[in-house]
Amino acid sequence: MIEVRNLKKKFGDHTVLESIDFQVSKGEVVCLVGASGSGKTTLLRCLNLLEMPDEGSITIGAKTLKFGGGSVRRNDIKELRRFSGMVFQSFNLFPHKTVMENIIEAPIIVQSRPKAVAIEEGKILLSKVGMLEHQDKYPDALSGGQQQRAAIARALMMKPEVMLFDEPTSALDPQLVREVLKVIEGLAKEGQTMVIVTHEMNFARRVSSKALFMDKGFIVESGKAAEVLTNPKEASTREFLALLDDD
């Protein structure tokens, strides 16, 4: 489903990702954990080519791209992106469009789905994330949790093989975190393949099948989530988890 090989990324002279290798099988939920600045978000953005890797290769679904030998063609970027949907920290809903208008725009414009079909599919997904009654509201009339659930529905509308989540609860008040995590947990139970950057360790232990701990641009430890996040082998992983427990 996903295969990353020898991925490297620099910003100027600063190396952000170094020799990244991992795989995600169909139906797996993989969490990326680590301190701020460890490279988690950059890695996730590289998977969707919002950041362009300097070296290595990424395979998602049936598409493989190799980096470092020249510029990547725009059509190749579009083809890789069609296999994945991304949910950001800050929702990124269009403020001048209703919830329904937000989630049907890309299927209509990018995938040429008939508007009536997109609306019916949108209603099903909004019901799934508990947002159907809010379909005609604008984002500024919604709570942060509601906006994030609408953003998840928007990503799902493109029928991605992989869902990418970049700390989907970090911008939410604590009382709103649970409703978003519940939606993601439901997707996991349905077998949706996901890669999730998160600091919610209890959620990660419960939902993830695999955990990757990152430090200073490297994957320091990987394995079954229950093992990595409960009984880590590496000292840096233990130190990171101890800091979270102290909080």
Rank of each mutant, 00 (worst) to 15 (best):
M1E: 12
M1W: 14
E3L: 09
K8N: 12
K9W: 06
K9I: 07
K10V: 11
V16F: 03
S19L: 00
S19I: 00
I20N: 04
D21Q: 00
V24W: 00
V29T: 12
V29W: 01
V30S: 04
L32M: 12
V33N: 00
V33W: 00
G34W: 00
G34S: 05
S36Q: 01
S38L: 03
T42F: 06
R45I: 09
L50D: 02
L50S: 06
E51V: 10
D54Q: 05
E55K: 08
I58C: 02
T59E: 04
I60C: 04
K63C: 05
T64P: 05
T64Q: 13
G70P: 03
R74K: 13
N75E: 15
D76Q: 14
E79V: 11
L80P: 05
L80R: 01
F83W: 11
M86F: 09
M86G: 05
F88G: 02
Q89A: 13
Q89W: 04
Q89N: 08
N92R: 10
F94G: 08
P95R: 06
P95D: 06
H96N: 15
H96S: 14
T98G: 10
V99P: 07
E101H: 02
E101W: 03
I104S: 03
E105V: 14
P107Q: 02
S112I: 01
R113M: 15
R113D: 04
R113Y: 09
P114R: 14
A116R: 14
A118E: 04
A118V: 10
I119V: 15
E121Y: 08
L125Y: 11
S127V: 00
K128P: 11
K128L: 15
G130T: 07
M131N: 02
M131Y: 03
L132R: 08
Q135N: 08
Q135T: 12
Q135F: 14
Q135C: 13
D136F: 10
D136R: 12
D140Q: 13
S143G: 07
Q146D: 06
Q147M: 13
Q147V: 06
R149D: 04
R149C: 05
A151K: 02
I152C: 06
L156S: 05
K159V: 01
P160H: 02
M163Y: 09
M163W: 07
D166N: 08
D166I: 02
D166L: 05
E167A: 07
P168Q: 09
D173F: 10
D173C: 08
Q175R: 14
L176C: 08
L176V: 08
V177P: 00
E179L: 07
E179V: 10
E185H: 10
E185Y: 03
L187E: 12
K189C: 01
K189T: 08
E190I: 06
M194G: 01
T198L: 12
T198W: 05
H199Q: 12
N202W: 04
N202H: 12
A204M: 12
R205T: 11
R205S: 10
R206P: 00
V207Y: 02
S208T: 04
S209M: 04
S209Y: 03
K210E: 04
M214A: 11
G217E: 01
I219L: 10
S222K: 11
S222P: 00
G223Q: 11
A225C: 13
E227M: 06
V228S: 07
T230K: 12
N231G: 03
P232Y: 06
K233F: 13
E234H: 15
S236I: 13
T237N: 10
R238S: 14
F240S: 06
L241W: 07
D245Y: 11
D246H: 13
D247A: 15
